[in-house]
Simulated scan of single mutants.
Amino acid sequence: MWLEAPVLSSRDPLIRVTAMPADTNPYGGVFGGWLMSQMALGAGALASRVGQGKAVVVSATDFAFPGAMAVGDELSVYCEVAATGTTSLTIVAEGIARERNGEATIRVCSGTFKFVLLDEDNRPRPVGEEALRAHGQ
């Protein structure tokens, strides 16, 4: 059932992509692993932007798949920084599907990703205050 879905943020989505036949599970629905990977890509883009450099995912938790999407539906991934540590960013991600031939939307996935910022030698580096302020965090 398609319903209006609340979006995590009023910002533009970090990822917008159309589900294709190769993205389905054996039952013909969009594979949860594909949804997880799209959320990780969006969260990683935000982590790199806010952290102003290399950011690697160190954990992924709290996945939920409250809705289903079909081949041809468009997925938009929204992300926000939920917390910061000395060298880490915790980012929540939410996926909203829009039906192929209309405007109806539904929340299909959500999850939390933790990233550590790395320097040129791949060692953890601090999250800069100026980076957080520049991105409204």
Rank of each mutant, 00 (worst) to 15 (best):
47 A>L: 06
27 Y>T: 06
83 A>Q: 15
56 V>Q: 03
69 M>K: 00
28 G>T: 05
123 R>S: 13
106 I>F: 06
126 P>A: 12
102 G>R: 04
120 E>H: 13
132 L>D: 01
9 S>A: 10
38 Q>D: 00
97 A>Q: 02
110 S>C: 13
122 N>M: 15
40 A>D: 15
22 A>T: 05
55 A>L: 07
123 R>V: 12
112 T>N: 01
112 T>D: 02
82 A>R: 10
18 T>M: 12
48 S>F: 01
40 A>S: 13
101 N>Y: 12
128 G>V: 01
47 A>M: 11
2 W>P: 00
45 A>I: 10
107 R>Q: 15
59 S>M: 07
8 L>P: 13
48 S>D: 09
67 G>D: 15
122 N>F: 15
79 C>H: 09
67 G>H: 11
66 P>G: 10
73 D>Q: 00
83 A>I: 00
15 I>S: 03
73 D>C: 01
90 T>F: 03
32 G>N: 11
41 L>F: 08
88 S>K: 08
1 M>E: 14
75 L>C: 01
126 P>M: 01
81 V>K: 13
65 F>M: 10
129 E>A: 11
38 Q>S: 06
53 G>S: 08
46 L>D: 05
14 L>Q: 14
22 A>Y: 00
89 L>P: 02
44 G>M: 09
102 G>S: 14
60 A>C: 12
44 G>D: 09
3 L>V: 15
54 K>A: 09
114 K>L: 02
54 K>N: 10
